[in-house]
Structures are given as structure tokens and as C-alpha cells.
């Protein structure tokens, strides 16, 4: 399943590449949009925890059609 996660603010390159290497990303209007394949629920919750640990604020989370 593919998910799209939106984070408030522009994330740095270092953060995107090393913090979330499994996701693709682009930036629009004060938001960073990350998307990618999520293996299972464990991965999803682990990912959400990672955003939390890194002090990032999620503004939107949705599943994308495959």
C-alpha cells in the first residue's frame, strides 16, 4: 500500500535523505510531501513515530490508490 504524508514546513535535504530514505518527496507551499510504499502496519506506525521523534508535525496522512 502507498501512503502520502504531509509535514508542515520544508524539510532539509539531510533529513529527507537520512531520516526517510524509503520515501520520495517534494515541497509545495510550506509543506513537504512524502510518499512511498508502506510494507505493513508496523512500518506505518514506526514511520509515524519517526516523524514524532524528529520533531516534525504531520498535517495530513492518506493512503494512495495502488
Amino acid at each position: 500500500m502507498r501512503y502520502e504524508i504531509r509535514v508542515a514546513g520544508t524539510m532539509s535535504e539531510a533529513m529527507l535523505e537520512e531520516g526517510f530514505p524509503e520515501l520520495e518527496s517534494f515541497v509545495i507551499a510550506d509543506q513537504t510531501v512524502l510518499a512511498g510504499r508502506i510494507v505493513d502496519e508496523a512500518h506505518l506506525y514506526g514511520l509515524l513515530t519517526r516523524f514524532q521523534h524528529l520533531g516534525l508535525r504531520i498535517t495530513e496522512l492518506r493512503q494512495l490508490p495502488d
Binding site: V7, A8, G9, T10, M11, S12, A14, M15, D30, T32, L54, G55, L56, R57
Partner: peptide, 8 residues
């Protein structure tokens, strides 16, 4: 700027 705060 619009960077994420802590990160930046």
C-alpha cells in the same frame, strides 16, 4: 523561511 523548525 518555511523550513521545519528543529531540523533547520
Amino acid at each position: 523561511g518555511h523550513s521545519t523548525i528543529a531540523d533547520f
